[in-house]
Nucleic acid binder design. Structure first.
Length: 137
DNA sequence: GCCAACGTTGGC
DNA sequence: GCCAACGTTGGC
């Protein structure tokens, strides 16, 4: 099983909305690298749900519930999407600052390619972030 | 609100 | 196929 990180601006699509809806299609990706990451996803893969711009923190975990398929909001037909289902919130959000302050996470794609909206997370990074979320600040 | 980083577009 | 111009993202 692989791990991922997906960014959403909470004023467009927030974690609370994701929880309320349960499963939602991840529309709107218009970047080949992000689309390629979604193509590589398998059912049951887990992803961190990250709030960009507002909050700048990982707030929850979703799982991939539908494989890559065409995004109806893309008029060019070039890009697709996956469906994601809310799994659980983090005990406490892990902020961008937390990640930057953790030496073992300094190579995360999130930091290296700040504009990439769907990125891969290594199992080691995944575990570290989970343990951060279980540690009181 | 600004600006750096970077991806995309389009002229040549 | 190159590269300048432009648009967008996202942190600060």
């Amino acid at each position: 099983m692989a791990f991922w990180l997906m960014k959403s601006e909470p004023n467009v699509w927030s974690w609370d909305q994701q929880v309320k809806k349960g499963t939602e299609s991840w529309t709107g990706v218009r970047n080949y690298q992000a689309a390629n990451n979604m193509k590589a996803m398998a059912i049951g893969d887990q992803a961190f749900f990250y709030h960009s711009n507002i909050g700048k923190e990982i707030v929850g975990i979703v799982k991939i519930s539908k494989l890559y398929y065409p995004d109806p909001t893309d008029e060019t037909g070039k890009f697709g999407m996956v469906d994601v289902t809310a799994v659980n919130p983090l005990k406490r959000p892990v902020t961008l600052a937390d990640i930057k302050n953790t030496p073992a996470l300094k190579n995360m794609a999130l930091l290296k390619q700040s504009r990439l909206s769907v990125s891969a997370v290594t199992p080691a990074e995944w575990d570290i972030i989970l343990s951060l979320s279980q540690t009181p600040r």
